[in-house]
Amino acid sequence: ARCQGVVCAMKEAFGFIERGDVVKEIFFHYSEFKGDLETLQPGDDVEFTIKDRNGKEVATDVRLLPQGTVI
């Protein structure tokens, strides 16, 4: 199932997405972002798939959504 959220933090090689369905942040590695990383910034709406890696939830297949998609 695809989830939606808003990019809330960006570091050197990874970032965090504030999920739209639950009050929780989820980790994503930049290699999982399908698009131009140069244009990705905090506040952007994205959709993603949640996978379990070593007992921790991570966002994979992260894709940009049109602004205003995530309420």
Rank of each mutant, 00 (worst) to 15 (best):
V23I: 12
R63V: 12
I71H: 14
I17C: 00
G43W: 02
K11C: 03
D36N: 09
F48N: 00
G5L: 02
K51I: 09
E57T: 10
V7A: 00
G68F: 07
D36H: 08
V23M: 09
F27S: 09
D44E: 07
K56I: 08
F28P: 02
E57Y: 05
M10F: 03
T69Y: 03
D45W: 06
G43F: 01
G68P: 12
F27W: 06
A59P: 02
A9Q: 14
D44A: 10
V23L: 11
I71L: 14
V70H: 12
H29R: 06
F48V: 02
V6K: 14
F16M: 04
D44R: 12
H29L: 06
E12L: 08
S31I: 04
V22K: 10
E32P: 03
V62E: 02
E32L: 01
V6C: 07
F27L: 08
I26H: 05
L64E: 04
D21I: 05
V46G: 01
V22D: 10
F33Y: 13
E18D: 06
G20T: 10
D45L: 10
Y30A: 05
Q4H: 10
T60R: 04
G68D: 13
T49V: 11
F48M: 06
T49M: 13
L37W: 14
E25Y: 07
Q41H: 07
I26C: 05
L64A: 05
D45S: 11
Q4Y: 13
P42A: 15
E47M: 08
V6G: 02
P42R: 10
T69H: 03
T49S: 09
G43D: 02
E38R: 13
R63Q: 11
R53F: 15
I26F: 06
L40Y: 02
E47G: 08
R2N: 14
G68Q: 13
R19C: 11
G15N: 01
V62W: 03
K56C: 13
D45G: 14
F16W: 03
N54K: 03
M10L: 15
E47T: 11
L65K: 08
L37A: 08
L37P: 10
Q41A: 14
L40D: 00
E38D: 14
T49G: 06
E47V: 12
T60I: 06
I17Q: 00
V7G: 01
C8M: 09
G5T: 03
V58M: 15
L65E: 03
F27M: 10
G43R: 03
L65P: 01
F16K: 07
F33N: 01
A59L: 00
I17D: 00
I71G: 15
L37I: 13
G5I: 01
T49D: 09
K51H: 08
G15D: 03
I17W: 03
R19Q: 09
A59G: 04
E57V: 12
E25N: 10
D61P: 00
V58Q: 09
I50C: 06
I50Y: 04
A59T: 02
V70G: 15
V6P: 00
R2P: 01
E18G: 04
V23K: 14
E32G: 03
L40H: 00
E25F: 06
V46R: 01
D44K: 13
E25W: 07
T60E: 05
T49N: 07
E38S: 14
G35W: 03
D52M: 14
V46H: 02
V7H: 00
E47R: 03
D45R: 13
V6D: 01
F48D: 01
E38N: 12
G15I: 04
G68S: 09
F16S: 06
D52C: 10
G43C: 01
E32V: 00
D21G: 13
R53G: 10
D52H: 08
K34S: 12
V22C: 11
F48T: 03
A1N: 13
E57P: 13
E32H: 04
I17G: 00
A9M: 04
Q41P: 01
D61R: 02
L64V: 13
A9S: 07
L37V: 13
T69N: 10
G15A: 06
Q4C: 08
I71V: 15
K24V: 04
F27Q: 13
K56H: 10
E12I: 05
T49C: 11
D45A: 12
E32A: 03
T39E: 14
V70P: 14
S31K: 13
A1W: 06
D52P: 09
E57S: 10
V58Y: 15
E12C: 09
D52T: 13
D36S: 12
G5D: 03
V22N: 11
H29N: 10
G20S: 12
E18R: 13
I26D: 01
I50W: 03
Y30D: 02
Y30G: 04
C8W: 05
E57W: 06
G55V: 00
I71Q: 15
Y30F: 13
T49Q: 08
Q41E: 15
E12H: 09
V22E: 06
A9R: 06
F48I: 00
Q4P: 08
G43H: 02
K24T: 14
V70T: 13
E12R: 08
V62G: 00
V46Q: 04
F28G: 01
F28Q: 00
F28L: 02
A13T: 08
G5S: 01
F28N: 02
K56Q: 09
E47S: 13
L37Q: 05
T39I: 09
V46I: 03
F27N: 05
D52I: 10
F28D: 02
V62Y: 01
G68E: 15
N54T: 09
V6F: 06
F16R: 07
I71M: 15
K51G: 12
D61C: 03
R2Y: 14
G5A: 01
V70D: 14
P42D: 07
E57N: 12
T60P: 00
H29Y: 14
I26P: 02
V23P: 12
R63Y: 07
P42M: 05
G20N: 11
C3G: 15
G35Q: 04
T49Y: 11
A13G: 12
I50Q: 08
D21K: 07
T39G: 13
D45F: 07
V58A: 05
A9D: 06
D61T: 03
M10Q: 05
G5F: 02
V7R: 01
G20F: 07
G68A: 09
M10H: 02
T39K: 15
K51T: 10
R53S: 11
E25V: 09
Q4A: 05
L64Y: 15
E47H: 02
V58K: 03
V58S: 08
F14C: 07
G35C: 03
H29T: 10
F28C: 00
V23S: 14
I50F: 03
K11A: 03
V22Q: 09
R2S: 09
K56G: 10
F27A: 12
Q4S: 04
F27G: 07
T39F: 09
F14P: 01
A13K: 08
D45Y: 13
N54L: 06
D44I: 08
D21P: 10
E18S: 07
P42N: 09
G55A: 03
E47W: 04
V23Y: 11
G15S: 01
K11P: 14
V70Y: 12
R53W: 10
I50K: 07
D36K: 15
M10R: 15
T39Q: 10
C8E: 02
